[in-house]
Nucleic acid binder design. Structure first.
Lengths: 356, 356
DNA sequence: CTGAAAGCGCTTACAG
DNA sequence: CTGAAAGCGCTTACAG
């Protein structure tokens, strides 16, 4: 590899001057600058980022630890994170935790060893010692989507309560009374919140949530399948299953299909997280959509603020209900099922937008 | 951050000794080793990977430049790559090209600047000067999925010809005669090969492929939508649309749905790349499945072989046809549509497995 | 405006 | 077995 020394030799200047030209330091003569630039071009020189990082103690790199790359929600989040980071002059290294705490720790450790400038994480659990230590040690950090209570780290997430209330009202209006939920791990905030919000919304409608209608899942498809099978085995199965993420909804569909049953005739289905395929599934699936791209961008901005010495802000954005046909026909738009999607989408315009 | 000096001071030895302990160098006294280890533990010391890389000229990092993170095929590929790399002691940095050559170059450049040990790429185009230079300069490199002809770099990919021939035979058997294709960019090998294989397969059935039945796509959903609209506007629209990736199939579904038409009654649809949602779409989609996980693992093994001085091997694995209902009822399994999936899956067991 | 020199945190021949 | 020292490729006060 050609180094800064080669460039200096070629241009007939010192390495200090080469470095100044490369870093656009003002005090370099026009003559020196041209000669250096010419040398850089003719040698095809590219500065060694490793050496530069060691010297400056900055890597211009953000670490992003997501819960699961195979989940389209996180994939979209990762994409918007990378995009915004790139716009701000950072690159991002993604670590996939696969919903496994040890793997999450592995990535956090590797990222820290590489001296990334800041860490974006969507925690898989309640917080390992490693992550808590990192936060306490002052590593610039921001939580996205999920967070760890009691840690002084900004959180960028969406609030699904309103949308879940809308969903339950929608289900109640369609005549459903026995509603079940497939939850995420209790150690995750999203896992907890979605059940709580669901339970509260049921109460508002005068319904309750019996234990056998709570399926313990882990945000992965298999757990959705198993939970749904258990629901279907009940003496009195639920009329609706609400999967708290899209992968568990996929598993639920597998289970329903395996029994030769139909959605929504035999059992209705709704999901948290909207994905493009939900428009084309059989039937199209009613889902709660998060402003994923916005979340990713806001998270990066918060982290970069923190890194560059500005005060980072937590951000909470509302999610919204997108009604499709998986819970039964919507009486309101019944007459024209083919175009059900659009009016329903606007049923619940984003309203409450809060920033802390 | 605590450095090796702090550990040396705490343990009462030189930094050389600390380094030896950390790198499991044999000649260290038992006594020194215990003291160093104790110091490491009590200080919570973690070696600075940046400094180590600068010194050893190895980063133990692989770069992976994929064409599109939002494409589940590449996401699955990325996951298997990371898994195998981790097993071999490497981490991976993913760059998402979004099917844009400039963005691809941006990532290759960044990765090279970081002095990754090797590069895994699925090229978005015919090869930029940057990439060709890197290959010529001897950067350890392996192509996955797509490749650039005329460059001396091992290729790990799957061969879809057999499966495409099976697909065309299946369509012909169902009575379809007017078959259209939505291709990928002509600059990509997969873009080219899939049309060629399709055209050859049609010829074997005595059919031809008129220009108006070739929709130029770019492997993204929008292009699939536009191509399909153009097909539907034809005086004599095709009876089948074969989308050469899953995202363009999604776009095709959007277009069909927007016209109020039905698959397969009004038009049949098949796709290259099988994804989990295809089981639950309306109707379930006939697709060509690649051994994605295998490809990712083989690619990593080839790259690591190259990095560690062993001879890397190119690998070609067969893809296989998975028949579902999007092209019309399969006469053979007609009597039991509900369980169509399983027998159909086995219709074309993977046969030709070649290694070069 | 420019260069010599120190130093970032490691590893590794070299001597002992 | 151990330590002093050089050096990886940069950047940046410091002097001039």
């Amino acid at each position: 590899m050609t180094s800064i020394k080669d460039v200096a030799a070629e241009a007939g200047v010192s390495v200090a001057t080469v470095s100044r030209v490369l870093n656009e330091h003002p005090s370099v003569s026009e003559d020196a600058r041209t000669r250096v630039l010419a040398a850089v071009a003719s040698l095809g020189y590219r500065p060694n980022a490793v050496a530069r990082s060691l010297r400056t103690d900055q890597t211009h790199t953000l670490g992003l630890v997501i819960s699961d790359v195979l989940n389209p929600y996180f994939t979209e989040l990762a994409r918007s994170v990378e995009e915004e980071a790139r716009a701000l002059g950072y690159s991002v290294i993604i670590g996939n935790a696969d919903e496994r705490p040890e793997l999450q720790d592995h990535h956090v450790r590797t990222l820290l060893d590489r001296r990334i400038d800041g860490l974006l994480v969507s925690p898989t659990d309640g917080g390992s010692p490693l992550m808590l230590d990192a936060a306490r040690a002052g590593t610039p950090m921001v939580f996205v989507d999920r967070w760890i209570p009691g840690v002084d780290v900004p959180v960028v997430r969406s609030d699904g309560r309103g949308a879940i209330r809308d969903l339950v009202a929608h289900l109640h209006r369609l005549g459903h009374r026995r509603l079940a939920i497939i939850t995420g791990p209790a150690a995750t905030t999203t896992g907890q919140e979605r059940v709580e919000a669901f339970r509260e919304a049921l109460e508002e409608c005068g319904l309750d949530l019996p234990d056998e209608y709570i399926g313990q899942g882990d945000f992965q498809a298999d757990s959705g399948r198993r939970a749904t099978e258990r629901f279907l085995d009940l003496a009195e199965p639920p009329q609706v299953v609400f999967a708290t993420d899209n992968l568990m909804a996929l598993g639920a569909l597998d289970a329903v299909r395996a029994r030769g049953l139909r959605v929504p005739d035999d059992i209705a289905l709704a999901a948290f997280d909207d994905i493009r395929w939900f428009v084309h599934t059989d039937p199209p699936i009613t889902a709660i959509a998060q402003p994923t791209g916005e979340l990713g961008r806001a998270a990066v901005r918060a982290l970069v603020d923190r890194i560059e010495g500005r005060a980072p802000r937590s951000v909470t954005l509302p999610a919204r209900l997108v009604v499709r046909r998986s819970c039964g026909e919507n009486p309101a738009t019944n007459e024209n099922p083919a175009t059900n999607e659009n009016p329903a989408t606007n049923e619940n315009p984003a309203t409450n937008r809060s920033q802390t």
